[in-house]
Computed example of a mutant assay.
Amino acid sequence: MSSDKVEFEHKLERQAQLLDARTAKITKLEGQLRDIAYGTKTYTFKPDLKGEDEANVFDEAVQLERGENLLELQIVGATLSPPALQVLGDGEPSTFCTYSFYLFEPHSTPVVTGRRPRYGFTSKYVVSMDEHFMDYLHR
């Protein structure tokens, strides 16, 4: 009976160590999640550009307050179908895109000419992760 008691105590001690390790891991992950979700860290934006745009790359540090995140919307390009080109009546039309997001001012891309316009436009918004914004995203 005493050997069973010693074995049980060792097993209990090992399980307590495993629980402590799991608790430490959960606490660490919760901290990382909090940093990401509530914007408590400063992130450096490094665009993924190729070719001639590489010369224009610069580091842009964004200062975020607690509860804020950086959201980026990027319009890369478009493809105009043959029926759309017919409606426009131009084989090489000049086009641009406009859009509105949440409570921010409307944005527009530069004017680009061609059947497959490449806008390469990114807009950045610092948003507060509150109930109203989350509801907007959900809708």
Rank of each mutant, 00 (worst) to 15 (best):
G89Y: 00
T44E: 05
D35Q: 09
E9Y: 03
R22G: 06
N69F: 10
S128F: 05
L19W: 05
R118M: 12
F104V: 02
Q15R: 15
T79Y: 00
E60V: 12
Y43G: 03
D35A: 05
Y43T: 10
E131H: 04
D135N: 11
T23H: 08
T42W: 06
R22S: 12
E72V: 11
S94Q: 05
A24R: 15
V87Y: 11
I36C: 05
G89K: 00
V76Q: 10
G31C: 02
Y38N: 11
K25G: 06
F101V: 10
L137I: 14
Q15E: 15
N69D: 04
A55S: 04
G51H: 01
Y38M: 12
R22F: 13
Y43Q: 04
A78K: 01
V112I: 15
Y125H: 15
V111M: 00
E30S: 08
M129V: 08
T27F: 04
M134R: 14
M134I: 15
S81A: 15
V111F: 01
A84R: 12
T109R: 07
F101L: 13
T95D: 01
F45K: 07
K11S: 10
D59P: 00
L73D: 03
Y99I: 07
P47S: 00
V6K: 04
S94C: 07
A16L: 13
T27G: 06
V127I: 15
E131L: 02
V127K: 06
L18Y: 08
Y99F: 15
L29S: 01
P93K: 00
P83E: 00
E54N: 06
E92V: 05
V87R: 13
R14M: 07
V126T: 10
R66H: 14
E65R: 01
F133Y: 13
Y99G: 13
R22E: 13
Q17P: 03
L103C: 06
L88I: 12
P47Y: 00
A61M: 13
K25D: 08
Q17H: 09
L70G: 14
F133M: 05
C97K: 10
F96I: 09
I75Q: 09
T113N: 11
N69V: 14
V126L: 06
E92H: 14
A61K: 15
L85C: 02
N56L: 07
H138M: 03
L19P: 02
V76R: 12
R115A: 09
N56I: 01
S2L: 09
Y99C: 12
R34N: 09
Y99S: 14
A84D: 11
L137C: 14
V76G: 06
N56Q: 07
V57L: 14
Y102W: 15
E60S: 15
L85I: 04
F133L: 05
V87C: 11
H132Y: 08
S3G: 04
A21I: 08
K28M: 11
S3W: 08
A37T: 08
D35Y: 02
S128I: 03
F8L: 10
I26M: 00
S100K: 08
Q15W: 09
S100L: 01
V57A: 07
G51Q: 00
T109D: 06
H132C: 07
E9L: 10
P110R: 02
L49W: 06
P117A: 05
P110C: 01
K28S: 14
G120H: 06
P83A: 00
T122C: 08
K5D: 08
S94G: 03
R116I: 08
N69C: 13
S81C: 07
A21M: 04
S100H: 11
V111E: 01
N56G: 06
